[in-house]
Simulated scan of single mutants.
Amino acid sequence: MVKITEDMTIMDVLRQDRETAEIFMKYGLHCLGCPGATMESIGDAGKVHGIDVSKLVEDLNKHFASKA
């Protein structure tokens, strides 16, 4: 099973499962194809956008757990 951490980039997660785009969008991270998505960690993106990173990571991990 995939374990998502806030140190991973958005693109790392999207490469594992494109369906996670909906989760990122729900949290206001809409620029999934921009250069930041490949270089910036989920934690850094969360800080810039003022979102609860721990909740985002939790939701991402729930998504992957449901696929196991």
Rank of each mutant, 00 (worst) to 15 (best):
H63R: 05
L29P: 12
C34K: 07
T20A: 05
G33N: 05
K55I: 14
R18E: 11
G33M: 01
L56K: 15
V48N: 09
I23A: 00
D17N: 06
A45H: 10
I42N: 07
G46A: 12
R18W: 14
D59T: 13
E19Y: 15
L60K: 08
G33I: 04
I23F: 06
A37Q: 02
E22W: 03
G33L: 00
E40P: 07
A45I: 05
K55V: 00
H30F: 07
E19V: 08
A45M: 10
E19P: 13
D17I: 01
K26I: 03
V53H: 04
A45L: 09
S54E: 15
G28V: 03
G50I: 05
T38M: 11
E40F: 01
C34F: 06
G50Y: 09
T38K: 08
L60M: 10
A37S: 04
I23R: 07
L29F: 13
K62V: 08
D44S: 14
Y27C: 12
Q16G: 03
G46K: 11
G33Y: 02
I51G: 10
M25Y: 14
I23N: 03
K55Y: 00
K62Y: 14
V48F: 11
R18C: 10
D52S: 12
V57T: 07
K62G: 06
K62H: 06
V48G: 09
T20R: 10
S54P: 07
E40Y: 06
F24N: 00
I42E: 04
E58G: 01
E58D: 14
